[in-house]
Design a protein around this nucleic acid. Sequence first.
DNA 1: CTTCATGCAAAACATTTGCAGCTGG
DNA 2: CCAGCTGCAAATGTTTTGCATGAAG
Lengths: 150, 150
Amino acid sequence: MSEGADIPEARLRQILTRLKERDFRITPQRLAILKILAASNGHPSVDKIFDQVKLDFPTTSLATVYKTVTLLKELGEVLELGFPDGSNRYDGNKPYPHPHMVCLKCKRISDPDLQSVEELTREAEQKTGFDILSHRLDFFGICPDCRQGD
Amino acid sequence: MSEGADIPEARLRQILTRLKERDFRITPQRLAILKILAASNGHPSVDKIFDQVKLDFPTTSLATVYKTVTLLKELGEVLELGFPDGSNRYDGNKPYPHPHMVCLKCKRISDPDLQSVEELTREAEQKTGFDILSHRLDFFGICPDCRQGD
DNA sequence: CTTCATGCAAAACATTTGCAGCTGG
DNA sequence: CCAGCTGCAAATGTTTTGCATGAAG
């Protein structure tokens, strides 16, 4: 429902601070990429980021986008959602494991608020003896908007 | 705990029946691949399947392995587990969504028995309004064997 | 100024495809 | 027999890499 402006500025500043702390440079291209990642809760793909960045910096190369998201991923400031079909989506707002709802029709990805994930993780640890460090949980289906529109 | 021989023959026969039903040929190479997929609960990769098949049929090509697993995937007889890093693992025993425990050290993948997955799926449907068609749930960590061995 | 980032193009990588020859049924 | 499978090699498509130039601090 709320599609418009959120409060991504705080998140953006946070990432900028992290970069400066570790002596990484804030280039215009990086700033543009960061803004996209911090602002969108739509989990953009590399190509989408690339297209958007080019609006402001037409000379930006795809390699730079890859390098930047890889850097952010390594710094733990972005969650990379790679899919088997090769597509990649990035989440700059919640860079930690959390469930995703993937609409197979419009390809939008949203974040549901599920209570029992923690519980499930603990169940998995107990039953298997694993020391669980992270997880990945995706639901695939048709979102309410796409069900209506059909 | 039970790591040894199971009863993969039933599963193998089932897949063979499916292939025959749809008029696909049972070649020696396919049979070898099927045996590996039906027997192993270790979720082998394409390369591992390839290596094993070559023991019996040294002339087998990687393309044939790819074609066969793709065919089986399309028939719904194999579950493909693709990972962001490009690796692919295949499950010929339970070709439907189910949770996986991935050991980051030994790379082994096992199937935990978790009760609350159904429940979680229903929660996700209710809270998001999605019509959920499938899901993917992976836990990443260190398995008991690897914790000991260290 | 010095170091790091950019952008181009080439490399690397797994997977797919085209096609001639072979073979299962 | 003959449709469909195999195996080779080339094509594909995405991500990575090397390096000269350019800019951040």
